[in-house]
Design a protein around this nucleic acid. Structure first.
Lengths: 198, 198
DNA sequence: ATGATTAGAACGATCATTCGATCGAAACAA
DNA sequence: TTGTTTCGATCGAATGATCGTTCTAATCAT
């Protein structure tokens, strides 16, 4: 997940992510990060300029990773429906496979702790824009109703995030069938005709 | 919002909410809460046993308030569609009118800082269960597809939360027309027939 | 031997919490 | 009425712990 960093940085970032996600930001103290990562506090400051710097680096790295993960197998040649299903399947797979990174972005994408510049970099590398473009195509082809693509993506992302949250909190099971149903529901919410009719 | 508390407690709760929402939990230090609320630290501990206690009281109070707000005007006699629209309209109105309380619940409903007992009390007084029952009726009447009501509510709540988030961050406008479109999209995502056909 | 890397003690600041001292209004005594 | 007692409400300084960060010395690789 943090391939582009050296081993010390990786250890620090992984530890910080773990601490923040299953405690709180405040619980991720430098001394705890140092102890759990096996890197001394002094050395941490050799690779990061501050605690804020660690958290922001974490943010950028995860957004980049997530963006790559979600859109990695979207081919221009495939139909809109195929790409639609694949994209949201990937979002769900991401949330299940990398719950810590997912929850972190979930929690901190609106936080003042993250610099505006980090968010800007995130926006460029993120996947929302690319998926919104797909929605635009769907409107052009008369598959979707005339709603702002960004708005639809936001709605659908919210749906997926919340069923993932429910899953993570063990409020509800999340089988493959349910995933498919959820994605179909998203499609139907903005499609002109109901169902997958290809 | 905190009617059932005395004046000192109200001042503390309001100040804490404000600090947590527009900074972070860590930024809401006792000394800051004391300064901004006009209540001395010593006196705060006369009414609350700890900082955790304040935050948990805050959580319970807001959940109760939100539950009341969302379901206040749902009448058994009204049609399913009417109640459906009204409920989600209320959720949106809540998010717009009380953004701090809304964001607080959003951020901390999955946090380990909130005791399990607080979450349990919240669950009983919350509105999700009541709306899920409405969905159950819709299934019985053949209006909705046979999907777990809690699952549908979770999805739709996610949609609404995210367009509210987008609105709050000024990523997107949120006009009354758009609200109606979003609610209709939620309906269509799980309905057997498209559109409001009453 | 030199320069980068690592360690952990030390620093001042700030944290949540405690504590002893006042304040103020009611209760009672004269 | 007036003076005294009482007790919860309120305050803010003090406490020890812990915070993020810095510093100096030791270690490592070359």
């Amino acid at each position: 997940m943090f391939d582009r960093y050296n081993k010390v940085q990786q250890a620090v970032l992984e530890t910080t992510l773990e601490l923040i996600v299953d405690k709180e930001l405040q619980a991720a103290s430098m001394s705890l990060i140092a102890k759990n990562s096996g890197v001394s506090t002094g050395n941490i400051y050799h690779y990061f300029s501050s605690k804020e710097d660690i958290v922001n680096e974490l943010y950028k790295a995860i957004v980049l990773f997530n963006g790559e993960f979600v859109t990695r197998d979207l081919r221009e040649g495939d139909s809109i429906q195929t790409r639609f299903r694949l994209a949201w399947k990937n979002v769900i797979a991401l949330g299940k496979k990398y719950p810590n990174g997912f929850r972190f972005i979930e929690q901190y994408s609106f936080s003042p702790y993250i610099y505006e510049q980090s968010k800007l970099e995130a926006y460029k590398g993120g996947w929302c824009g690319r998926v919104a473009k797909l929605y635009g195509e769907a409107i052009e082809q008369g598959l979707f109703i005339g709603m702002e693509p960004r708005f639809m993506v936001q709605m659908h992302y919210g749906s997926i995030v919340y069923i993932l949250k429910g899953h993570a909190q063990h409020y509800m099971e999340l089988t493959e069938d349910l995933e498919d149903e959820a994605i179909l529901a998203c499609w139907n919410s903005v499609s002109k005709e109901k169902g997958w009719n290809e």
